[in-house]
Design a protein around this nucleic acid. Structure first.
Lengths: 328, 328
DNA sequence: CTGAAAGCGCTAACAG
DNA sequence: CTGTTAGCGCTTTCAG
């Protein structure tokens, strides 16, 4: 492996000089030597050892990304947004899938500490492992987790309460009277807030709040399917607000199997506006999360926290109703 | 930041001793000192600096994963499989999205060299940038790219020719006479082989090969949609073999819009068997790729190449027909 | 304009 | 059973 020392020898200079040239700190290097060095670097195909550099400068130009599961379209789109934004700033991304298991989150945090990442972005864990997160030695940005935490932790949140409110109000406006709800556990922060938003809308509109119309499971197709069967078989409903699009897809499947027509018999609103939602049958009315923007805001906050040690530590984004066939 | 030296001081030993204990090379350390060290490590919440360690041992316990786009369900499932397998072996994963741009692949390779990853897994780029790949200093496993390369490059391939053959034969067996095909560019290795498999089946069955029935674009929903419109509007077809499930979803959308009934009028076979394929309407008949197995095989090969310097450098997997409503 | 020297935090002989 | 020493490849004063 070629080292900076070898390059220096070939150029007849010291490694300090090569280092300066390579890092653009070469205001005081004669252009003759600069050119000579650059030529040799080129010829030799020299690639600096980033590990040695990191050890010295105490920065790895790497972030960690902790999410439940890349396989979930919402998180894969998020990962993409974050990777893009990071890459644009010269940072790489270490991918960590927790599958919602608390101890995996802890393990990954430990690994990221050893790897000396410059920061991490964490999206969702059911359990509030805040003590662990607060002890970590690098800046962290939390996604969609609107809770009180130490001041060294950034937050990007999308107004889930508002999203739930808008979704429900839309269903009511197009004529629904008995609105069901299928979502993940209420221990899950985003679910909880969307649920609250729904309740607020219901109260405001003077619609009945019937807990038999609500089904709680996971953010999965299966939960959507099972929830739909359960609610629709026992109750008389004309609309369902689903906690995310994946659940909505499962619910639509279940309802179709039972012979219901969407949207004629039952109208469906999802949440997230993932990529496929406009391609399913019928195209899904949903609450669009500004996924890409969540990602870039998260990276931006992280950068702020790293460099400027800023106290601009929280961003709030607004979701948006997208009306398609499933509820119009 | 606590260092190994500080821990050593507190324990009244040398850092060498602490290092041995921490790395399980402590056969010759008295259990008294071992315990004392471990206790102090615990008390101090000491976390070793992995960068310093990596510099010394010349291994980062990190792999790179280069894919076109995590947002594509096939790749997100692949990423998950690879992350799982890597994590199980104590390796982290750096995620790299190329969006199919050749220069991004090159850039990422460069970054991974600087970051001194222990290996990388590369899934697909249209252009064969093999020269670049062959110059890289760490072991690489190529996915789904059955081309001749240097002996320091591993390969995991799924028999795409066979997959295309099986898909086409199935369509013929259930009565299709005029079979269309929508896929990405034939410069794309997997597409090309699936296409060849289709042609082989067609010849074998003595079915007409009409190039007006074939549409080439990208592995995207839009290509599926446009391809379906184009082929079905001008030609009389009764079946379409789609290069992947995403394309199939787009095609089904287009065909429905044109008033065709699936599978009654036109039968559809996809490729990949991504997560949602069984939930779309109608559920998709497709060629299932052993995605998870691709991931674990890739990691396994990489490990082989790293440790055993083995010449077991190629794995071939077989895809499998999954019959659902869209073509049965 | 350039170089010598120190040191980032760790591990691996080797010596005792 | 434990410590000394050297050094991984780089950057950064500081001196010249």
């Amino acid at each position: 492996m070629t080292t900076i020392k070898e390059i220096a020898q070939m150029a007849g200079v010291s490694s300090a000089t090569v280092s300066k040239v390579l890092n653009g700190k070469d205001k005081s290097i004669s252009s003759a030597t600069r050119e000579r060095i650059l030529r040799i670097v080129e010829e030799q195909g020299y690639i600096p050892n980033g590990i040695a550099k990191s050890l010295r400068i105490k920065s790895t130009k790497t972030f960690g990304l902790i999410i439940p599961n890349v396989t979930n379209p919402f998180f894969s789109e998020l990962a993409k947004g974050i990777e893009d934004a990071s890459e644009a700033e010269g940072y790489s991304l270490i991918l960590c899938n927790t599958y919602g298991k608390d101890n995996r989150e802890k393990q990954y945090l430990r690994i990221l500490e050893e790897k000396k990442v410059d920061g991490a972005i964490i999206a969702a864990s059911t359990k509030e492992d805040i003590e662990v997160i607060e002890r970590v030695s690098f800046p962290i940005v939390l996604l969609d987790r609107d809770i009180e935490v130490g001041s060294n932790i950034g937050k990007v949140i999308v107004d889930n309460e508002y999203g739930g409110y808008v979704a429900t109000k839309h269903l009511a406006q197009i004529g629904c009277k008995r609105i069901g709800h299928i979502t993940s556990s209420l221990k899950d922060n985003p679910s909880n807030n969307r649920y609250k938003g729904m309740l607020r809308a219901l109260e405001e509109l003077d619609l009945e709040i019937d807990h038999n119309l609500y089904h709680f499971g996971k953010f999965s197709i299966d939960t959507g399917y099972e929830g739909a069967l359960e609610i629709a078989s026992k109750q008389n409903i004309d609309g369902i607000f689903c906690g995310n699009d994946i659940i909505a897809i499962g619910a639509i499947n279940g309802l179709k199997e039972m012979g219901y027509k969407i949207p004629n018999d039952i109208k469906i609103v999802g949440y997230d506006d993932i990529y496929i939602s406009k391609y399913i049958d019928p195209p899904l009315t949903t609450i669009r999360q500004p996924i890409y923007s969540i990602g870039s805001n998260a990276v931006d906050l992280l950068l702020n926290m790293i460099t400027k040690n800023g106290k601009d530590i929280k961003r709030k984004l607004i979701p948006q109703l997208v009306i398609r066939e499933s509820a119009k």
